[in-house]
Design a protein around this nucleic acid. Structure first.
Lengths: 337, 337
DNA sequence: TTGTATGCGTTATCAG
DNA sequence: CTGATAACGCATACAA
């Protein structure tokens, strides 16, 4: 057990109230006394107990972050954006990831209660119901890239559909007639929407073909594998649109191994715009979504809700906002087939 | 404010003690009563208040993680390793990063107190003194990749020197006579040690030359820039050893832009072995350190210390361990100049 | 099997 | 300016 405020008070010959005033710089305190208290605190290596503090102030200066996984640069970027914004406003982040089972999520949610002032949730598999059932009524929540089922929570979504649609149209405009698409993880909301964008674009151009849709799971390895299938097709696709950058990178490496010229023979595009994309050769063309900004923006919204909540203004006087992050395509692969 | 145990007790017509027993499954309780309590709890959406719980049990089931930054895949991997291990043992992680100023670190350290059961610190710039001054006496700490100044804390270090030494010797053994080295961030402990390994190897072979040491700061951009300098030299180096993978990736892209064949004309090697390295073309040769395992191992050690600490066994009955993570080189670039 | 009462370390509200 | 003292929400000896 550490040193408590009580021991500091005794050491300094004052009451705990005075020590508290000195520590928090709240209320008036004689300069000499202040000095005595500070010296005592330092001598004893006193550090205030966070949990006790939270209990009485009902503030934790901490934001809970629920993530599905921590693989690859995508989540790294999201966390970075979140952390940066949080830090800027003096908040910490309590991270919990890799929740496969529903019970895991519930446990995490429960464990967060009383330890965080707000919650940032990015869990495609999580239902709103599960959230509601395991969350204290009053906790502000921002949903990041979750399927919006109700309107009760603030949400922030990547424009998956629009991005994929625009990129597909772009490729079509370049004259590509056979565009292969590497799907994301099955059942994943992002994956579904991107696929939908691809389908709408290719179907409206009369270029859709079931065989051109390749399996994938967002991993580099699956992108690598998809290329093998694509190369076996005849006629061979002239463009490959991967549902995320990681798969595009895997695809790129497989194409090189196979001695296929990129983008000469096959154009490759991704989705996400993770930082490393710029340093690949050739630079990966990708739908830009501003990942870290996404995290930062969501965090900003959450903090706003948290502090607003602090004013006990009945909460929810402001309607939930539903933002969609616009994206732009890196319109790069100028090679027409 | 959320629902408290008291309200559940009233709703169920029992005392708070009974509710507590039901929630924690501690102590005996009549089956019928249990049912009543559970129903009441569910009806009210009761979720125990974490801070209050921590206060009385002096357990937070949370590990604090102090990181210097969150850039790139390296830290992403470290966090992943930490989080996985933590989760496996039922702990959460409270992350705090980007501490440039000393005051930032102190603030973070203080804010963690009472909110975590142990601390994982990876901060090359942090002095042991600063740690001691701002940490409760009793908090278990594991230092990850920090310069070991004293023996008071458990530490886990990458074998930076050994890895760089081995890689440099490997390149020399392949016949390279002019090996350029891209330094890491100045003042960084890891960077210094890797540089030292390179120097010892090249000097003992009589191949060291001041001009071959290039500036860098661990960023991809700096690797990119370093290549421009290297290419301007004459005679041109036949190998480039970057102090981390990110810079090696930047170097790779610059070399491609310049039309230089890798590894034909210039061999490129890195340090860290971040996951993406495998998918570059050509695959990046790198010193393998098992980043996520590093995080996992450190976490395991910390949890051990935490739980040992729980038994109030006076703490520190076990001597601090100082592990050095062995590394191996990816002995890949078989091209001799 | 259940309830009462105490205390965890702080901050906040009042008197003095 | 300072000091008692009551919360905060919960777990737990101890009584019943």
């Amino acid at each position: 057990m550490g040193i408590t405020i009580k021991e500091v008070a005794r050491e300094a010959g004052v009451s705990v109230a005075t020590v508290s005033r000195v520590i928090n710089d709240s209320g008036p305190v004689n300069e000499a006394t202040r000095r005595r208290v500070e010296r005592a605190a330092r001598a004893l290596r006193y550090v205030p107990h966070g949990a006790a503090r939270s209990l009485i102030t009902s503030k934790t200066i901490t934001l809970g972050v629920l993530l599905p996984d921590l693989f690859g640069e995508f989540f790294s970027e999201v966390i970075r954006g979140i952390d940066q914004r949080a830090q800027r406003d003096g908040y910490h982040i309590l991270v919990s990831s890799s929740h496969r089972k529903k019970s895991d999520i519930e446990a995490a949610l429960q464990a967060m209660s009383g330890r965080v002032d707000g919650l940032l949730v990015m869990s495609p598999d999580l239902s709103i119901d599960a959230l509601q059932a395991n969350l204290p009524e009053a906790l502000p929540v921002v949903l990041l890239n979750c399927e919006v089922k109700g309107m009760q929570y603030d949400t922030l979504n990547i424009d998956n559909f629009g991005g994929a649609l625009a990129m597909s149209r772009h490729l079509l405009a370049l004259g590509h007639e056979r565009i292969a698409f590497v799907r994301g993880a099955s059942g994943n909301h992002d994956a579904d929407e991107r696929l939908r964008g691809y389908r709408v674009a290719t179907q409206e151009a009369g270029m859709w073909e079931a065989a051109l849709e390749l399996d994938g799971d967002f991993s580099q390895a699956s992108g690598h594998e998809a290329v093998r299938q694509a190369l076996a097709m005849s006629p061979r696709p002239s463009a490959l649109f991967a549902a995320n950058d990681a798969m595009a990178i895997g695809a790129l490496s497989a194409l090189r191994e196979a001695g296929v010229d990129v983008p000469g023979e096959v154009a490759v595009t991704g989705f996400d715009d993770i930082p490393i994309s710029k340093y690949l050769s050739p630079p990966l063309t990708t739908v830009r979504v501003g990942i870290s900004e996404l995290g930062a923006q969501a965090t900003a919204r959450l903090i706003e809700a948290v502090e607003e909540n602090g004013n006990r203004t009945k909460r929810k006087e402001t309607a939930p906002t539903h933002l969609v992050v616009r994206r732009s395509c890196g319109m790069h692969p100028e090679n027409s087939p």
